[in-house]
Amino acid sequence: MSDAISIQNLNVWFGEHNDLFQAVKNASLTVAKGASFGLVGESGSGKSTILRALTGLAPQWEGSMSINGTDLTEKRNKQFYKTVQMVFQDPYASLHPRQSVDQVLSETLTLHGFRDIDDRVNKLLLDVGLGPAFRFRYPHQLSGGQRQRIAIARALAAEPKILLLDEPTSALDVSVQAEILNLLCDLRAEHGLTYLMVSHDLAVVAHMCERAAVMQNGEIVEIIEVADMRAGRTQHDYTAQLLHASANRVT
């Protein structure tokens, strides 16, 4: 059985000719089907860039990436978008300010070729813990947590197998963070999803994932089992440093 996500020797650049910046250097990782994998590191360490390269939003990359054993080329096809979806960091920026929840979800469903849109919209809203009452609201009528639930519903609309989570809770209040994380845990169990989750919060990764890669300055310095992380068995100084910084919160 092939891995859900496999990344080998990935390099990603931003900028143009003379002004190139290498955001990810020689990164390799694999995520098994149904697993939940964390990417941790400080801001600017290239975590989110790996997700953007996977989804084709960062076009300048080199190396090999494959989803369920299929190598990714320059262009992503419809099948890719049906398999892999992403939840963005800031729910205040990831919903179109002029589109109601209904418009967002209906359009997504139409794009993926579904027919029974009315039923599916209602079911998606129930899946993410919002009722049909939210269907015709606009983003400015929703709280941050509710917005993130809508963003998750949008990502689930295509019935993907792999969900890329780009710091899904860092823009939210602490109490709402827990709700969203629990929702993500439930959804994973329910739909048999594979998660690749980016976070700067070790506690979140410890809660959600089984394994994690620690990144620093665009490089993966260590891939560690969460159990080892909890026990403090680290191999790289930087991981120990991160652990120390968030002591008391991980275990």
Binding site: T55, L57, K78, Y81, Q85, M86, F88, Q89, D90, A93, S94, L95, H96, P97, R98, Q99, E107, T108, L111, H112, A151, R154, A157, A158
Partner: peptide, 25 residues
Amino acid sequence: SDYISAIRLQGAGPMRIITKHIWPL
């Protein structure tokens, strides 16, 4: 912005993005 990235990830083409997502704004 993220909401344009999000709709691109749903497989929307440039015509759709321009007319349905950028024009209204």
